[in-house]
Design a protein around this nucleic acid. Structure first.
Lengths: 337, 337
DNA sequence: CTGAAAGCGCTAACAG
DNA sequence: CTGTTAGCGCTTTCAG
């Protein structure tokens, strides 16, 4: 039957020490004599005692929980990131409280309020834009936050992204080197900084070679919108290459090209994506793409967040990590011409 | 600057009522006069007060957090489930504390102990097997647990799965009806109940038609192992159809068949999977598969867990939800012969 | 190093 | 309905 939970007082009684002694034994930085430690550990083991993390949090003001806000897990990049993030944080003794900022479950502002209620030590917002009002609240509550894969103009906000500008430019250079003349772009949701930066880098790269976008459609970062965008683009004036703002959409674009438009990739059209999600390496897609170095991005994110937790006065940091172009088979390769 | 957090006492002072009055106003089931409610709400709004969920949890014994143990998010079925689970729980006022039971971050037993430390109200274990010792600890701690997509012999353990036995049988019948004579099976990790049940249902279905497995290899539920398994199977005695224990592996099998073995699917080999993950519907795979009704499985899981939280004496339940065979193009279709 | 005592912010009887 | 009074389980001074 459900045995009542063991308290430190009970352990203390059994070990013949004070309750605070028990607390010290289970507090990382505290000191106790070898003898006390042994007695307490023994009693604790026999009773099956484990400290109550919540009570500890209430009094110490540190919950060792990190709130993670994430919008949708359909794009493979995010499960991957979630897993890495959770692992990295677990290693540091933190745990992740997940909040889905989906459409159904109330708006994002509500979600962040709820997170704050749980006294998280920090917040990671993955691919969600926050009202500045909200970031103020977090600040007011003294809860550091870092944006993952999004950046905001707000100078006090830490953010980790890949170098989307450079990435977009690399794609342009690659496509130009491949001899493409009619280059199209399928955009993501235009409110996203990643979308804007990738496009900017891309068109800058084009401009550097005196070229401009031959066609442009918006795919909103969803597969269905990307499909529609592809159909529209190829109905009017078909390009010979298309850069798609992320892999998730790029795969929809490839499918649409191949199975609805009967076009060959890369013979008829070159396709390049962004992210390098696991699926992109599958033979069926074999997608040329810019890699977002998830491991390094995660490491930086955790790093910044923990620094800020340990010292609230740490300056906000914006990091852009360079990612390589991964050349596979979905785009004509200049080297092999 | 980081303003100190507001307490109910401060709100009480400003509203000119007692601290407990404030507590009542913010406690769902409690009663307070219209007048008090107004005064308190006003003061709270002005101060930006929100109740501390952790302090509440300590004293009430209810944290309104659910621990979710999940092993790996690479198989798309799980991100999908995680998202649905989190949404469903959020709607009921619960939040999800995620624990990755990965290889790197310590073994699963440790993970569950950590969850328990956070005083979660319940645990959902997705696709992870627990030592019976561990389920005892949860029981002892009075924390209900339900297994998702796994079942265990332990009769006290609630579990929600699809009807894997029936699913496996459907595949056998479908393949037989398709006129296949040499039917192979690529197994998942053999410790998994899903693997065992799917295979059992499948071979039972074969046996009912006086057939037996023509070939069998183990793919461990990973793409690379599945690839190797495929290579082995087709090197020795190639079947004309293969049932793969889940979609994640099935896609690796298809890729291997097409791009390494130069076989056509379904002309040379029929492939059928299990799960119906989003990717399976993509034109590149167009995989015939047994759908696991994630939405219903999630709904049941949440239902069972919350019932048990509200009344610890609720009987454990094992639910198997029937899922349809989704006929697409990766296997020869009897109807079209 | 150790115990006693004072809280952390909140809920839950308990009288009124 | 409301305020007062105890705690929840733990950390953290503070003397010793």
């Amino acid at each position: 039957m459900a045995q009542a939970k063991i308290t430190s007082a009970e352990v203390a009684a059994r070990a013949g020490v004070s309750q605070s002694a028990v607390s010290r034994v289970f507090t990382p930085g505290a000191s106790a004599s070898r003898k006390t430690v042994e007695k307490v550990r023994k009693a604790a083991r026999e009773l099956g005692y484990r400290p109550n993390a919540l009570a500890r949090a209430v009094v110490s003001g540190k919950s060792r929980m990190i709130g993670l806000v994430v919008a949708y897990l359909e794009n493979q990049f995010y499960p991957d990131v979630l897993e890495r993030l959770s692992n990295a944080l677990q290693e540091k003794g933190y745990h992740v409280l997940v909040f889905m900022a989906s459409h159904t479950a109330g708006n994002i502002d509500t979600v962040v309020e709820e997170i704050l209620d749980y006294q998280v030590d920090g917040i990671i917002a993955a691919s969600v834009a926050l009202s500045s009002d909200l970031s103020n609240r977090c600040n007011a509550a003294g809860v550091p936050m870092v944006l993952f894969n999004r950046s905001q103009d707000d100078k006090d906000m830490s953010a980790v992204t890949s170098d989307n500008l450079a990435g977009g430019r690399k794609v342009a250079e690659f496509l130009i080197a491949g001899g493409h003349k009619k280059i199209g772009y399928i955009a993501g949701w235009e409110g996203a900084s990643t979308q804007r930066d990738r496009e900017k880098g891309f068109t800058d790269g084009l401009a550097a070679a005196n070229m401009a976008l031959f066609a442009r459609e918006v795919g909103q970062f969803t597969m269905e919108d990307a499909r529609q965008a592809t159909l529209r683009m190829f109905a009017s004036n078909p390009p010979d290459a298309v850069f798609v703002a992320n892999d998730h959409m790029a795969m929809a674009v490839m499918d649409t090209l191949r199975y609805e438009l009967n076009l060959k990739v890369p013979e008829d059209v070159s396709v390049v994506g962004y992210d390098d999600v696991p699926t992109s390496a599958w033979p069926a897609y074999n997608l040329t793409t810019v890699r977002q170095p998830a491991n390094r991005m995660v490491a930086e994110t955790v790093d910044i967040l923990l620094s800020k937790i340990n010292d609230k006065n740490t300056e906000p940091k914006r990091i852009e990590i360079d990612g390589p172009l991964i050349v596979r088979g979905s785009a004509r390769n200049p080297k092999e011409q």
